[in-house]
């Protein structure tokens, strides 16, 4: 029996706000919340390998995703402007890294997503249920088309819009998730 303590959408909102404020010192604002069928990450091999040296202009859009392995399977993803990802990495690495290299941007966003996914699962499952996470992946451009729908939240931070996405049937079938704190058989 898996106990869900709050709706996934709320848990994701809280995790995004906590993580961006804690790691990047950014206040986030929720712009839009919906269930959508956005492009699906993870099919295309990585096209943002971060091996290139030097600080070229960041890609227009980047996505980062991380599998949720147990007790619920799914995927949490963030899609954001490349320039905002570079800004977050620059803020973490300090003033000497005004134009962080791609590897630093990718690693920073992977770590941010790892933290975000952990916060999300803690918000969703509470303190007494263990969970497992996979490893982050990164991609450049638009995410590829999936059939699976996702919980999609659009935020704004530092003047940039970005999306947090949650894939997985358990998370999307919101009628499964009872708003009061009850045990839910999944």
């Amino acid at each position: 029996m898996i106990r869900i303590l709050r709706p996934p959408r709320e848990a994701l909102m809280a995790a995004v706000a906590d993580t961006l404020e804690g790691m990047a010192f950014e206040q986030v604002e929720l712009i839009e919340s919906g269930v959508d069928a956005p492009p699906w990450p993870g099919v295309e091999p990585e096209t943002f390998p971060g091996q290139e040296k030097g600080p070229p202009a960041p890609p227009a859009r980047l996505w980062f995703c991380l599998p949720l392995s147990a007790p619920l399977r799914g995927l949490v993803a963030v899609e954001l402007p490349g320039v905002y990802a570079a800004q977050i990495a620059g803020a973490l690495y300090g003033p000497e890294e005004q134009s962080p290299q791609r590897e630093a941007v990718r690693d920073t966003m992977g770590e941010l997503l790892n933290t975000l996914a952990g916060r999300f699962m803690q918000e969703l499952l509470g303190p007494d249920q263990n969970f497992e996470l996979g490893f982050p992946r990164a991609g450049e451009g638009e995410m590829l088309s999936p059939d699976a729908p996702a919980v999609k939240l659009t935020f704004s931070a530092a003047g940039y819009p970005f999306q947090a996405l949650l894939f997985g049937d358990h998370f999307v079938r919101e009628d499964t998730f009872i708003l009061q704190k009850e045990e839910v058989q999944l």
């Binding site: 952990g118 263990n130 969970f131």
Partner: peptide, 12 residues
């Protein structure tokens, strides 16, 4: 130091 350190895992 981890993002997976909920109370149950901390105890473990």
């Amino acid at each position: 130091i981890s993002s997976m350190g909920n109370a149950a895992r901390q105890e473990e």
